[in-house]
């Protein structure tokens, strides 16, 4: 394994390329900015609910606006397209080019994607900061410590999404359906992640499931931390759940990688 200084150089270089790739087409950037607005559609639904029946599970108008505004940034920063990309790499044989380099293909792909996320952050975080200052209904009331923990959870959430995506990506060594399998997993989990609504709004059974399963750690946890809506015990349990799932999926990726690569057929060419 290369020394830390060399690893930093490798990551910086890959991230620079990922950043450059994401910026290569203006149309792509415009579409990305539009997709960041999707959570605001869910927000309008919940605002009309609050208007009709009042606050729901402790979430009032200001709470929902803040949740989805912060969520719009968190969703973009903790998402990962690596499962589909990997599926393509294996199916078309492009993985061969990455395998020939003296750095793990997983590092290469994640490095590129982190670069793309840096661009997402550079575009969306300033908008969120300005909106927080300008809109009285948007309030990030957590302490500085909450904000720091929220950013840590955001990084952890991206790492967990990526580890989950890579676990399914490794299925590509056995099946050509890894991307679709991941879509199924993520589709089922989106509801429990806090994508559709804050987890505390869900029925008790789903709330219990959300507390155990990995999805909430990737979306709901960082949002609620940044908004300062969790007490110390909830923060400890949330961070421990995130760390536990991250460790479990990291081990799964390593095991599947070492077995899958032996089956790799390096098709084409």
């Amino acid at each position: 394994m290369p020394p830390v200084s060399e690893r930093i150089v490798i990551w910086r270089s890959l991230m620079r390329v990922g950043f450059g790739q994401a910026l290569a087409y203006r149309g792509q950037v415009a579409i990305f900015l539009l997709t960041a607005l999707f959570p605001l559609v869910m927000m309008t639904v919940w605002l009309s609910v609050v208007e009709e029946v009042g606050p729901t599970a402790g979430w009032d108008r200001q709470g929902f606006i803040s949740y989805y505004a912060v969520g719009a940034v968190v969703f973009q920063l903790t998402t990962s397209s690596i499962a589909w990309r990997w599926d393509d790499l294996v199916r078309t044989g492009e993985l061969s080019s990455l395998l020939l380099r003296p750095v793990s293909p997983l590092t290469q792909q994640v490095g590129l994607e982190v670069g793309q996320r840096v661009l997402s952050a550079a575009l969306l975080v300033p908008v969120l900061v300005v909106a927080t200052i300008a809109l009285p209904d948007l309030s990030v009331s957590g302490s500085v410590m909450n904000l720091i923990l929220g950013v840590v959870a955001l990084g952890g959430g991206y790492a967990l999404t990526t580890a989950m995506a890579l676990t399914f990506a490794m299925v590509a060594f056995w099946s050509t359906q890894s991307g679709n399998l991941y879509a199924l997993w993520w589709g089922a989990g989106a509801f429990l992640a806090g994508w559709i609504a804050p987890v505390s709004v869900l029925p008790p059974g789903l709330r219990r499931a959300a507390a155990i399963l990995p999805f909430r750690s990737t979306v709901g946890l960082p949002i609620e931390l940044i908004l300062g809506r969790l007490d110390t015990a909830q923060i400890v349990v949330g961070m421990a759940t995130l760390a536990g799932w991250l460790a479990a999926f990291t081990v799964a990726v390593r095991v599947l990688w070492s077995r899958g690569i032996k089956r790799h057929q390096a098709v084409g060419g």
């Binding site: 490798i10 380099r101 084409g268």
Partner: peptide, 21 residues
């Protein structure tokens, strides 16, 4: 028939990445 270069970027970017890798 295989492309190892980053398709959407100038060639020098691929060479710079190889320098790091």
């Amino acid at each position: 028939q295989r492309n190892q270069l980053f398709w959407d970027l100038p060639t020098i970017e691929s060479l710079r990445v190889n320098q790091a890798i």
